[in-house]
């Protein structure tokens, strides 16, 4: 039977060795388990953070893009609206102008026509009056001549009628 310790014995060196072993093992575990695992966990956390911040950046970018596009779209819309408005206005203006011109022209034409008609009427009246007077003179002359020259009567009438026909 080999030499053994008492079941309940306290030995200073043994206790010290137990403490020393615990401390050594502490450093072993710290160095070989905790340090690498913590490094990995940290780098993973960092990576996750990076991914998150990247996603955040991308979202921000997307938002700015969206805003720009919306701005642009609004601008374009406004421009088109304005253009349409302008075009409508100018078209309206132009159509009014055209209408006014047309009305004025028509007025002019009418006035001109009325004038013409009036002038023609006047002329015709004047013509008629001169002709009637001359006819009366002629007729009276002829009546007078007839009494004088019967033979020439027929000739005169014919010529008068001819002349009348010519003048009318």
């Amino acid at each position: 039977m080999a030499e053994t310790l008492e079941l309940l014995s306290i030995d200073f060196w043994q206790t010290l060795m137990a403490i020393g072993n615990l401390i050594i093992l502490y450093f072993i575990v710290k160095k070989f388990l905790y340090k690498p695992v913590n490094e990995i966990l940290e780098s993973r956390a960092k990576e996750v953070d990076d991914i998150y911040s990247e996603a955040e950046n991308m979202r921000k970018e997307a938002r700015t893009y969206k805003e720009t596009y919306e701005d642009k779209l609004n601008k374009v819309k406004n421009e088109t609206d304005q253009m349409i408005k302008k075009a409508t206005e100018s078209a309206k203006l132009r159509s009014e102008e055209i209408l006014n011109e047309a009305i004025a022209e028509a007025d002019n034409e009418r006035r001109k026509a009325e004038n013409d008609i009036y002038l023609a009427k006047k002329k015709a009246m004047e013509d008629l009056s001169t002709k009637v007077s001359s006819m009366v003179v002629e007729l009276s002359k002829q009546i007078v001549q007839k009494e004088i020259d019967l033979d020439a009567h027929q000739k005169l009438i014919d010529s008068a009628i001819d002349k009348l026909g010519e003048s009318v």
Binding site: L5, L8, S9, I10, D11, Q14, T15, L16, M17, A18, I19, L22
Partner: peptide, 8 residues
């Protein structure tokens, strides 16, 4: 061993 547990 009591020494071990006592040390810890």
């Amino acid at each position: 061993d009591l020494n071990t547990t006592l040390g810890w």
